[in-house]
Design a protein around this nucleic acid. Sequence first.
DNA 1: CCGTAAGCTGCAAAGCGTTTGCAGTATGAG
DNA 2: CTCATACTGCAAACGCTTTGCAGCTTACGG
Lengths: 159, 159
Amino acid sequence: MSSPGSRTTVIALLADRGYRLTAPRRQILDVLLASGTPLSAAGIHRRLENRRINLASVYRTIWVLLGLEALRATDAIGGEKRFELADPLGAHHHHLICQDCGRIEDLEGCPLEERVLRAVNRRVRRSRRFRIVEHELRLIGACADCDGAGRRTRARRRP
Amino acid sequence: MSSPGSRTTVIALLADRGYRLTAPRRQILDVLLASGTPLSAAGIHRRLENRRINLASVYRTIWVLLGLEALRATDAIGGEKRFELADPLGAHHHHLICQDCGRIEDLEGCPLEERVLRAVNRRVRRSRRFRIVEHELRLIGACADCDGAGRRTRARRRP
DNA sequence: CCGTAAGCTGCAAAGCGTTTGCAGTATGAG
DNA sequence: CTCATACTGCAAACGCTTTGCAGCTTACGG
């Protein structure tokens, strides 16, 4: 038994839906598995063993994995898109985003209590007829590297 | 006395920092004031009275306003950037984002309790040496238009 | 094993939102 | 009213993402 983001599950899913397990896909999957943080398409590409794999293939694989719901897209600061393997069913986590260097760290667990979530859900359902499917909490600030010692020189990202 | 996002304050801020109050800037400000929801650069441009104002000027004005901290950038779904005038000092709000049409609605108030926020702050400060400056809660789902009646045909946005 | 259909890949070019260089225009201080 | 200079429109440059195409690979059946 394995969870949505595990290697075997994703590979099984591919086969199951008629997708082929090709060398680029396997390597991209391995990069995602090895990374503890969401990666951009370029970030994935940079980490690939085989540097001859084309960036276009990275994008195409991202699309396939998103379609399988094995991958989750996260909006980094300034509209950059990053991707990480999906959490096990039912679980989810949030992100600490450094506004200086853009680095994203995972925050294990969700600080929003069930009680509060249900209340908000009910409220917007009634007042706006908006149905909440998921939520995302972004904690924005300065990471260990960028904080201390009088603010690094690294440029703050543009919007 | 007026708050950060008010017309007079922004105009005063411009003068104060040596910026000129030009026709394009005034119109862009009025579009932002009139809109109840964050707008993209193209969205602002589309709503301008004078359609001869160049999109590049919209971008340049956005930069100026961001610099004055009179404008706030929001990441819409899929990396699109949208902008809205800043909240009064100290206040903040969150967003309901429709994953179908991309529309963003404001959620008045913040469901995260002080108690909880302080706890998370302390926790990541200690365990990761991450200093949280602000937080952003994104409630993602289906808006009134896109929900009911067997899901509209509008394409779900790409990542 | 080997042959084959169709899914994939690399490459290069096209798309799209955003930024920048430039020459001319308009603002606001004196 | 005059003038220095901040600002604007335009067009070209940019950087990331997507797409068309011809050839390569995978998975499946024999």
